[in-house]
């Protein structure tokens, strides 16, 4: 619990090439915290946020070139509407991580709650633990990499981009997918409506490896399943009514 405002320190340990601003959250009004973060980002400082207490809306709408690290767990919508910031979360993230981000890079060391990367259009979300239900729901583009297990109904109605899960996936995987792709290494609970497993070509695997390479996650021994839309839901046909009712 702290009322300490932002402090600027010259002994940067995260980014030794620049000044670092330390911001305490505690029970302070989130608008104040947000104003501190925006001011530090405008000044070009690297930012460390402490005592986050899983609070909501931390680091929403961050500008390009902002570098920010949250030392604890964060609540809902962290990194939402990101326009190019590099965000690191040391523990877990709540609902709607990076929702609607248009570019940037988010790393979560732990678990990411429901709907991570919902409707994102570009950029990268890297989740080192498991991801909750409906990861990448309605995403339009960009990449979500989950080192652990992908939650229930992930990729739901995804329009574009790639979700790449290295530790398997839960039930209803890639449900009602549109033009997005869900790549899974490991076991899949079961497939969602109109989700189809395809054998990836060498070129397609190379594309995924190129996404994983900067993260140090390439492993040529993986047995990939590439899941795409069966396209039965793209146009309504009365014979498919049962499939529609399952959504």
């Amino acid at each position: 619990m702290s009322d300490t405002p932002a402090t600027t320190s010259s002994t940067a340990d995260l980014h030794s090439d620049s000044t670092e601003t330390l911001i305490e959250v505690g029970q302070r009004p989130i608008r104040e915290v947000h104003a501190d973060i925006q001011a530090a980002a405008q000044a070009g400082h690297a930012i460390v946020v402490r005592d986050t207490l899983s609070r909501h809306n931390l680091g929403v709408g961050l500008p390009p070139n902002c570098r920010i690290r949250f030392e604890g767990s964060v609540g809902y919508y962290c990194g939402g509407l990101n326009t190019g910031a590099t965000i690191q979360i040391d523990r877990n993230a709540g609902w709607g991580l990076g929702e609607s981000m248009s570019t940037g890079h988010i790393t979560v060391n732990g678990y990411a709650g429901m709907s991570a990367g919902a409707t994102m259009s570009a950029g990268t979300i890297h989740i080192k633990g498991d991801a909750g239900p409906r990861c990448g729901v309605g995403m339009k583009g960009g990449h979500i990499i989950v080192e652990g297990k992908l939650g229930y109904q992930s990729g739901f109605m995804s329009h574009g981009g790639k979700i790449i899960a290295l530790g398997g996936a839960g039930e209803s995987c890639a449900d009602a997918l549109w033009e997005g792709e869900v790549w899974v290494a490991g076991d899949i609970g079961n497939l969602g409506v109109d989700a189809v497993i395809t054998e990836p070509t060498a070129e397609q695997v190379a594309e995924v490896d190129a996404i994983l390479a900067p993260l140090g996650l390439v492993d040529s021994a993986r047995n990939w399943r590439r899941i795409v839309a069966g396209q039965r839901l793209w146009y309504f046909e009365s014979r498919d009514a049962n499939a529609w009712l399952m959504i």
Binding site: H56, R91, N92, G94, G151
Partner: peptide
């Protein structure tokens, strides 16, 4: 319902069990 509520009781970082699945 929300993690930030249980953090009112457990102020430190704690192991959170997320019953997120169906």
């Amino acid at each position: 319902t929300e993690e930030q509520a249980v953090r009112r009781i457990c102020h430190d970082e704690v192991d959170i069990i997320n019953y997120d699945g169906p």
